[in-house]
């Protein structure tokens, strides 16, 4: 039976919608990439981006575009947020799966989901008016790498905890029966069987969370202090790539503007690679099930 005219028209229309949706990411890469070309080429050029000592894009006499401190800010804030988020998130998932009574299990999941739904600008605002003053009394100036890391850790913890919880749930019950038959206690079963078996799922959640942390803008820009420098301690202000884009794009021109687009392009590549890597990892090793 050949398809009717109606079917062909509908199929074509839906196909156009599908290709449009799939093509948007390509549009983004092209449009952002084209704007970034001058920065990588000669205005100011890669040697300047990597070689200049400072980030002084607005200087009239001799603008400098050393973006290494900015990239370092992005990496540091991601590392310092992912460590506490992983410890607390996995701990939370273990408690929820293996220790909590049933009602608390659901309650905890609901709270994590609500926490995940708090918008970044609101968490950033909370960090600015509550967290930063506390840090300021203890370790001035308050707006710092530490503040940004804490705020980010709060934001990404639900991602880690919820994916870890799902991964632990998917551990096959046969393994638990085998562990019980061997006389393993609860802690040994969790540490020796459940967590190793679920490690791929947990690692996937951690990488997703890290990708989110490095791409987060609003929460970070409000608490990180926004000084483009190599931080001497975690209580020094920093300025990650996202914050730099958000703060400077409104007035940047020519080469400076192109550098900001290069930063954005770089972010897409890093985050896309991380997420793509999770999606296309090889299937798990056979001994898993």
């Amino acid at each position: 039976m050949s398809p009717s005219v109606n079917d062909r028209v509908a199929g074509a229309a839906l196909g156009i919608a599908a290709w449009l949706c799939g093509g948007i990411s390509l549009l983004i890469l092209i449009w952002v990439g084209v704007e970034a070309i001058p920065a990588l080429n000669n205005d100011p050029g890669i040697s300047s981006l990597l070689g200049d000592a400072h980030w002084l894009p607005g200087s009239v006499r001799e603008p400098q575009f050393g973006m290494l401190p900015i990239l370092a800010g992005s990496v540091l804030v991601t590392i310092f947020s992912i460590i506490p988020a992983t410890v607390a998130g996995v701990g939370c998932a273990v408690f929820q799966r293996f220790y909590a009574p049933k009602w608390m299990r659901t309650f905890l999941r609901r709270v994590l989901e609500l926490l995940a739904g708090i918008p970044s600008v609101v968490i950033g605002f909370w960090g600015l008016v509550v967290l930063v003053p506390i840090l300021q009394k203890w370790q001035p100036p308050g707006q710092s790498l530490a503040a940004a890391a804490i705020v980010l850790a709060i934001m990404i913890l639900p991602t880690v905890a919820l994916t870890a919880s799902t991964a632990l749930k998917n551990v096959s019950p046969g393994l638990f029966r085998a562990a019980a038959a061997l006389g393993m206690g609860r802690a040994r079963t969790i540490l020796g069987v459940a967590l190793p078996t679920a490690r791929r799922g947990i690692a996937g959640g951690v990488i997703l969370a890290a990708a989110r942390a490095i791409g987060e803008t609003m929460a970070v820009v409000m608490v990180c202090g926004n000084v483009a420098q190599w931080p001497g301690s975690i209580f020094d202000p920093i300025r990650p790539a996202t914050a730099t884009i958000a703060l400077e794009m409104s007035y940047a021109t020519a080469g400076h503007r192109s550098v900001l687009f290069a930063l954005a392009f770089f972010l897409v590549l890093v985050v896309g690679a991380a997420v793509g890597w999770i999606a296309f990892r090889k299937p798990s090793t056979p001994h898993r099930r």
Partner: peptide, 8 residues
């Protein structure tokens, strides 16, 4: 597309 950071 789902992985693109919002600032981008």
């Amino acid at each position: 597309l789902a992985s693109v950071p919002s600032i981008v």
